[in-house]
Amino acid sequence: MPVRRGHVAPQNTFLDTIIRKFEGQSRKFIIANARVENCAVIYCNDGFCELCGYSRAEVMQRPCTCDFLHGPRTQRRAAAQIAQALLGAEERKVEIAFYRKDGSCFLCLVDVVPVKNEDGAVIMFILNFEVVMEKDMVGSPAHDTNHRGPPTSWLAPGRAKTFRLKLPALLALTARESSVRSGGAGGAGAPGAVVVDVDLTPAAPSSESLALDEVTAMDNHVAGLGPAEERRALVGPGSPPRSAPGQLPSPRAHSLNPDASGSSCSLARTRSRESCASVRRASSADDIEAMRAGVLPPPPRHASTGAMHPLRSGLLNSTSDSDLVRYRTISKIPQITLNFVDLKGDPFLASPTSDREIIAPKIKERTHNVTEKVTQVLSLGADVLPEYKLQAPRIHRWTILHYSPFKAVWDWLILLLVIYTAVFTPYSAAFLLKETEEGPPATECGYACQPLAVVDLIVDIMFIVDILINFRTTYVNANEEVVSHPGRIAVHYFKGWFLIDMVAAIPFDLLI
């Protein structure tokens, strides 16, 4: 008679799926529990143990900040960024110097990925580790590398530091407007667009060049630039800015003055950032001319202004700041037409079709709590990747769950009947059967004279019903998954307890 339990259901295979997918890609990662103190490590794979030199037993239950890997060259700011990422709910990448158990130093890129439950609360953290440099290539500990984003994938490793954006290309926007319009339909740009040429040739750093990471940081200074100062900065030398009595002219307006920039070969870094931020506020060169004239017309309804409409929906549905990093990277690809469009465009503009998908598509409701890094690593669709929660398995109709209350009560009843059979069957065979043979035949009273025979008949009927119930009862397979398919249940029961239950259900007393 089957006594099969499996009270692990309803099970959740999400954690096993993450481990299996990460292991298949030869990654070095740990999984931490966000619900406990210090976000203790609950799993670390073999790749991480080989990377740091510690065994799994030495890593388990330690804080996922990996303070046991810190050393003299470990930056405090990087460690603080990892700790801050564990307090938030967004994906974050941090470069930090770690030390192995043998004392060797290596520069590592740590990717902190939160995993949320159905309520939107962070319950786990996945920390992925990628070695960037070994100890002989690690720089000085005073050099802070965590304020910069990861290198873009479309640049060669040897040319990542030679990417320079020439400031004269930004200063000569109005001069290039006529050349853009003359391109017409034969050019790649839309009317009114501004073409910015980027020099990728390796050259020595000069005062006129600005690194790509500095251009990325310009967006942080746009908020500090007032509207009046932006307007004066875009007017140009024809209309000098008016300053109040006793007030000095704005240095932001002076930063885009061609006369002032041409007199000296070098520009201050602050002026460069502010000038680029001011130019980015204009949607095209037409807006710059309109600002000089004193009238700013409404933005025209053409394809170039609607190019950012799908980007707005993608940004609203993005799951991490990696989408913004990807957008900034692609927006700086050289030799393309940049349409400086305000994100607050007309909502009635139709979304044009684009061959290049900048932001990841909208994630469906079932995966809105899973970050983009987890979705990318697992390579699963929205119909396959579940949320991290207890999910009731989908069972067929008329199927009994093996952990249901009805099955528990039924098993206790069958257990009592088995005990009765084990006690009274030998007793009936030894004593009652002998008395029946010696006594007179009682054929007239039937079952009324033999109450134990009636009980034995009921017990046999219950055993037959138990066999039928076992054909529709779920079970737990070797992978700790609840199986509810009727065919698989029948095959599993035939290979197991079916023969024993059938022999126990045969009414031998009635056959004798």
Rank of each mutant, 00 (worst) to 15 (best):
G236H: 06
S207C: 05
C49S: 13
P150I: 06
K166C: 06
P240R: 07
A260P: 05
V222P: 10
M291L: 12
R77Q: 15
P237T: 07
S179T: 09
K93Q: 13
V3D: 14
A80G: 10
H70G: 01
P240N: 11
A169P: 13
S209L: 14
T270Y: 05
G381K: 05
N146M: 10
K21L: 06
I330H: 08
I288P: 07
V138P: 08
D197P: 05
R252V: 09
V215I: 13
D355L: 10
P114S: 01
Y327V: 08
R312H: 07
S261T: 06
A190W: 13
I330C: 14
R312I: 07
P205Y: 04
H7S: 14
R312P: 14
E23I: 01
V384T: 14
L86G: 01
G345A: 07
A217G: 13
A211L: 12
V198W: 03
G158N: 15
I82W: 01
A290M: 15
D144L: 14
S272N: 07
L324W: 08
A307N: 07
G71I: 01
E50Y: 08
R159D: 11
M60E: 03
P237N: 05
P114F: 01
R280T: 13
F14P: 09
K116H: 14
D321K: 09
C52N: 01
R159V: 12
S255T: 09
F14H: 15
L256T: 05
R62N: 05
D259L: 08
F348Q: 14
D355W: 07
L51C: 03
A89N: 14
R73E: 14
G149F: 09
T329A: 13
G314W: 05
P150C: 06
S272L: 07
T319C: 05
A285T: 12
T353C: 10
K116I: 13
L316A: 11
Y99Q: 01
T319H: 08
K362V: 12
T329Y: 08
K344P: 10
Q75F: 01
S318T: 14
T201W: 04
A360E: 06
A293K: 15
R273A: 14
I363Y: 15
P157T: 13
R27D: 07
P361A: 05
E134C: 09
A85P: 01
A188K: 05
C49N: 10
R312W: 10
V341D: 12
N339I: 01
G238C: 15
S331F: 04
M133A: 13
D323V: 04
C39A: 14
T145C: 05
R76D: 15
R20L: 06
F29A: 01
C39L: 14
V115P: 01
E372V: 04
V279C: 12
S284A: 12
L69F: 01
A290T: 15
H221G: 15
G238N: 14
F29Q: 01
E289P: 08
G47M: 06
G246N: 04
A89D: 13
E214S: 06
K101R: 13
C265R: 12
L380Y: 03
L173V: 08
A40Q: 10
S104H: 14
D259I: 06
P334W: 01
S266D: 09
N45L: 01
T216G: 14
D321F: 04
P168W: 01
E37L: 09
V279E: 13
N339H: 01
A204T: 15
P297C: 07
S284M: 09
C276S: 07
A188F: 05
I19K: 03
F22D: 05
R326A: 13
V113M: 15
A142W: 04
L127T: 01
A83G: 07
D259M: 04
H309N: 14
F129V: 01
G24V: 06
P227T: 06
V377F: 06
M133G: 14
E90N: 08
Q376P: 03
F98A: 01
H147S: 15
S354E: 09
I330R: 12
V196P: 01
I42S: 01
T216P: 10
R242I: 09
D259F: 15
T270W: 03
Y43D: 01
V110T: 05
L316H: 14
G139K: 06
V279N: 11
I358S: 09
P386Y: 03
G186E: 12
E274M: 13
E274Q: 12
I123Q: 10
S250R: 12
L343G: 15
V195H: 04
M133C: 15
L385F: 14
R312M: 05
I82F: 14
F125N: 12
R269Q: 04
S140K: 14
L15P: 05
V215H: 05
A160L: 13
E37Y: 05
V138T: 14
R301P: 10
D199C: 01
L69V: 01
V194E: 05
R269M: 12
L210I: 06
A34M: 06
G262R: 11
D342K: 07
T152W: 15
S250G: 10
V36C: 15
S283A: 08
T367V: 09
S264W: 14
I126C: 09
V132Y: 06
D197H: 01
N45M: 01
R326Q: 09
T17F: 11
L256C: 15
I96M: 14
G120I: 03
P299V: 05
T17S: 07
N128Q: 15
L109I: 08
D259T: 14
P347M: 09
A169H: 15
I30W: 01
D144H: 15
A193M: 15
Q81V: 13
I333N: 12
A57V: 15
P241F: 15
G262A: 05
H70M: 11
L378A: 05
V36N: 11
F68P: 01
A211D: 15
T371H: 04
A223N: 13
P299M: 08
T152Y: 15
S331A: 07
N45E: 01
V138E: 15
G184Q: 15
K116D: 06
C66D: 01
K166T: 06
D16L: 08
L315A: 15
D197Y: 01
V325G: 14
D219W: 06
D323S: 08
D199V: 01
P310D: 15
S104M: 06
C265H: 08
N369A: 13
C66P: 01
I288W: 08
A268V: 14
S104E: 14
R328W: 08
T162I: 05
D111K: 08
A156H: 12
K161L: 03
L86C: 14
M218S: 10
D136A: 06
S304K: 12
T65N: 07
G236E: 13
V36Q: 05
S278A: 15
G184K: 06
P72A: 09
N12Y: 15
L87G: 12
S263E: 13
E58Y: 10
L127Q: 01
P114Y: 01
K344H: 14
L343A: 11
A80N: 04
G149R: 09
R366E: 03
A293N: 15
T17N: 15
E50T: 13
S178H: 06
S304Y: 11
A175T: 08
P150G: 15
A203R: 14
V341T: 11
V222N: 09
L107Y: 15
F98H: 01
V59H: 01
I359A: 14
T174M: 05
A282T: 05
V198N: 05
V94M: 01
L225M: 12
P168K: 03
F98R: 01
L109D: 11
M308D: 05
K135E: 05
D136F: 15
S255R: 14
A9E: 12
T319A: 14
A303P: 07
A223K: 14
A228N: 15
G314M: 09
Q61D: 09
S239N: 14
I42G: 01
R271T: 14
S264F: 06
E58T: 01
